[in-house]
Computed example of a mutant assay.
Amino acid sequence: MRLEVDILSKTFRSAAGETHAVLAPVKFALQSGEVGVLIGPSGCGKSTMLRIILGLDRDFEGHIARPPEARVGMVFQEPRLLPWRSVEQNVRLAAPAASDAKLAELFRILELEAHRSHFPGELSLGLARRVALARAFAVEPDVLVLDEPLASLDDALAGRLRDEIATLVASRPVTTLLVTHSLDDAARLGDRLFLLSRRPARILAEVPIDIPRETRSDAAIAAIKAGLARRAQDEQGGERAGRDVS
């Protein structure tokens, strides 16, 4: 399963009739089993890019390629659960063909076994995020898109949920694209990292991580994060210099 992204441009027209560029040329590809991470400043166009990749926005120049039969799982920034349905009903609505054994395993991994009959209003944000992950994995996706799934969680909870995401991603060959502001999330979960510019977003640098996720030590992760921070600072500094010259 291969995901190919080749966006030439994306613009929108304001109420005043002005045209604004959201995305500059962005091109990359991800293979089955690979986790790509998009890292960029707020408002640079990451969510717009995800909408294009998911097929929710077709008003752009370029093309997105994936096998037509590919199943897609999506975890949004907000859990987006139906409040009048229970945890299990929310998951089964997305994956009606999922077996009882499959759901039981997902609920076990995500520590949701005691919450299957609860409703979204009874859940903490962390639990609701777990339900959103269960819903995405229940469809057995070929392509998984995660839009800042750990945002606004405390460090301890984010760490536990990050480990659960890593376990789920390792459980089946899925092509994964993660959007995050966190260098820690990127260093722990990613195989290839894409540093994005300010709007209109373009790829400033592509950073591969050769150490397998399951063998990355704390020291290796700290080194990856330090290198990412330096790379981002250098690239953004060069970008500002280029704008000043122009």
Rank of each mutant, 00 (worst) to 15 (best):
R2E: 15
R2A: 13
V5P: 07
I7K: 05
S9P: 02
T11Q: 10
A15G: 12
A15D: 14
A16K: 15
E18G: 06
T19A: 10
V22S: 09
P25C: 05
Q31M: 08
Q31R: 12
S32Q: 14
S32A: 14
G33Q: 00
G36M: 00
V37C: 08
L38R: 07
I39N: 10
G43F: 08
G45V: 09
G45H: 11
K46Y: 04
L50G: 03
L50M: 05
L50W: 00
R51I: 10
I52E: 02
G55N: 02
G55H: 06
D57R: 09
F60P: 07
A65W: 13
P67E: 13
R71S: 14
Q77L: 09
P79I: 06
P79G: 02
R80E: 04
L81M: 01
L81G: 00
L81K: 02
L82M: 15
P83G: 09
P83E: 05
W84Q: 03
V87L: 06
E88Q: 14
N90F: 07
N90M: 01
A94N: 04
A95R: 04
P96T: 09
A97L: 13
A98Q: 05
A98R: 05
K102S: 14
E105P: 11
F107P: 03
E113C: 12
E113D: 14
H115I: 01
R116D: 07
S117K: 15
S117I: 13
S117R: 14
H118M: 14
P120R: 03
P120T: 00
E122W: 07
L123P: 04
L125E: 08
R130D: 06
R130M: 02
V131F: 01
A132M: 02
L133R: 01
L133A: 03
L133T: 05
R135S: 04
V143K: 02
L144C: 00
L144E: 00
V145Q: 05
D147P: 05
L150T: 04
A151V: 15
D154E: 00
A156K: 12
L161V: 15
R162F: 00
R162Y: 06
E164C: 12
L168K: 01
P173F: 02
T176Y: 05
T180L: 11
S182Q: 15
D184P: 04
A187V: 12
R188D: 10
G190Y: 12
D191R: 08
R192H: 15
R192N: 08
L193H: 09
L193W: 12
L195E: 11
R199L: 07
R199F: 13
R199E: 11
P200M: 06
A201P: 01
A205R: 13
E206Y: 08
V207Y: 13
P208F: 10
D210C: 08
D218R: 14
D218Q: 06
A219G: 12
A219E: 15
A220V: 11
I221R: 13
I221Y: 09
I224G: 13
K225R: 15
A226C: 03
A226N: 10
Q233M: 11
D234F: 02
D234M: 15
Q236A: 15
Q236P: 05
G237V: 03
R240N: 05
G242M: 08
R243Y: 14
